[in-house]
Design a binder for these strands. Structure first.
Lengths: 185, 185
DNA sequence: TAGTGTGTAGACAGATCTGTCTACTCCAAT
DNA sequence: ATTGGAGTAGACAGATCTGTCTACACACTA
């Protein structure tokens, strides 16, 4: 999976530069760890421009989470479609974990960091619900479909966390593949 | 599971009051979201006392993570010992998720929030490694033991994240129990 | 008694944070 | 030509943050 978002932002309009920079820094370094002066410097805009497009830092955080959700979910659905059955999930995770900028799930990270922000918690909940739905849609119809989607989602989140904390993907992927294999067998 | 750490701190020595307050606030609200003036006010100590015991906020964060690890792991091992087989894991999670102060895993939250702090990332990695080991130790000897421990750990982390983001435990527990049942079957 | 350790009160400093504002320029549309 | 939108430069303000410091009191031990 290529970086989300694009890293060459110079030709973008100011708003997109800000959002791309925010996306990169918020995801890599944390929401509160990223100050607006740094966002402004790296976006190549001025403060007036920054605040013209995003009235507050929280607005930018929300825009970042929306963009993240949209881009990630598009990628996820496409990745799941490349192979039949639950093994597609492991393949998708392998691809994601291998990307240079992988640092876990932005929504898990955000919810852990800013539990007092309803917008962040809502975004996280909705993101995960849609991830489960995407997984479910690729499963064969039948009485165990919903349960299988729940279990696969649990496995995926466990693997995401494992890969993030390990700082590398091998053990997470091995465990995920074993688990998916058990569930598919 | 009763709250970690104790909530009635008035009779404790100053250092323990600081650490207990830090534990509560860091876990509930986040590391950076908790400022030292608040810690000081709620600990009932002065600034000199605070800094006499913890030379910096980062030192306090580390002490918090160490205490958290120690208390949680003691509880986890005891909880796993109450029942034979992988179902003990689901029981332990049920107990934890039901506690009033449950807000996910302090180590996942910390790693998501402060990836640039090696001490936080190390603590998270070690915590999860010891959790996997605790799970493994309760499994029967055999060729698939290590793999099973890996899969159960993945399931546990997935359930932890799910319960945290949902803000309630039902779906997480149902999914975990299904998954554990599949693995044990 | 003297020394040490631990506690109190809270003022202070500098850094960093988020957000507000003035003044100006350029471009496109009317 | 005029207007509006979007961009520039960067100063400024107040709040919040982490950490430093003076002065003093009390308890315990040798």
């Amino acid at each position: 999976m290529k970086s989300i978002p694009p890293t060459d932002i110079a030709a973008l309009p100011a708003r997109d530069r800000i959002l791309a920079t925010a996306h990169r820094l918020f995801y890599q370094e944390g929401l509160r760890a990223t100050g607006i002066d740094r966002l402004i410097a790296e976006s190549g805009v001025t403060k007036v421009t920054f605040y013209r497009h995003f009235p507050s830092k929280n607005d930018l955080i929300q825009a970042y989470l929306e963009q993240r959700h949209s881009l990630w979910m598009d990628w996820f659905k496409a990745a799941l479609a490349r192979r039949d059955g639950p093994a597609a999930l492991a393949d998708a995770m392998r691809e994601w974990f291998a990307s240079d900028d992988f640092r876990g799930c932005a929504f898990i990270n955000g919810a852990g960091e800013m539990p007092a922000e309803p917008a962040v918690m809502d975004a996280a909940r909705r993101h995960k619900a849609e991830m489960r739905q995407a997984i479910a849609e690729r499963l064969p119809e039948g009485p165990g479909k919903a349960e299988m989607a729940e279990m696969l989602s649990l496995a995926a989140d466990g693997a995401i966390v494992r890969a993030q904390l390990d700082g590398q993907a091998d053990a997470a992927l091995a465990a995920l593949e074993s688990l998916v294999g058990k569930l598919a067998g």
